[in-house]
């Protein structure tokens, strides 16, 4: 994605918070506690009723599940590492991504963290596959 387009998108994420949370010089303890509280722990948070939808898995979503499970099966990570890595994404990504997009993003991150792949290998592979799929369509 072009830099300008990307920046325009980022600018619109949670705009009402931008003045408050833009690497402030200081924040109160209470805000720090809130910011670092473990993200996936949403039970009891206020929310409105939302329709319960049955979307069903797309192919990439099912493949994400399978790839993540195979990584666990063969010892590259365990499921709790995946769940922790999802928290590590931070609130914008955690709540911004679809469920399985969170999974595959942190699978890639964990493989890099563990030194099993490098970021340049990952980037090149992504570009190669994108070119392959665009030629297909």
């Amino acid at each position: 994605m072009q830099y300008a387009t990307l920046m325009e998108r980022v600018r619109h994420l949670a705009p009402e918070e931008r003045n408050v949370l833009d690497s402030p010089y200081q924040i109160p303890n209470e805000l720090y506690a809130a910011l670092r509280s473990v993200l996936h722990d949403v039970g009891g948070q206020p929310d409105a009723p939302t329709p319960y939808l049955e979307k069903g898995e797309e192919d990439w979503e099912m493949n994400t599940y399978l790839t993540c499970e195979c990584l666990g099966w063969r010892g590259a990570w365990n499921s709790e590492m995946r769940r922790r890595a999802e928290n590590d994404l931070g609130a914008t990504m955690y709540f911004g991504l679809p469920y399985y997009a969170r999974w595959i993003t942190v699978a890639a991150k964990t493989l890099v963290d563990k030194g099993l792949i490098t970021t340049d290998e990952l980037g090149q592979k992504i570009d190669e596959i994108r070119a392959r799929l665009e030629a297909r369509d």
């Binding site: 670092r36 039970g43 009891g44 709790e80 769940r83 922790r84």
Partner: peptide
């Protein structure tokens, strides 16, 4: 106090 990860819920 828990940093980074826990499965003991706040509630």
């Amino acid at each position: 106090t828990t940093l980074f990860h826990t499965r003991t819920q706040k509630f």
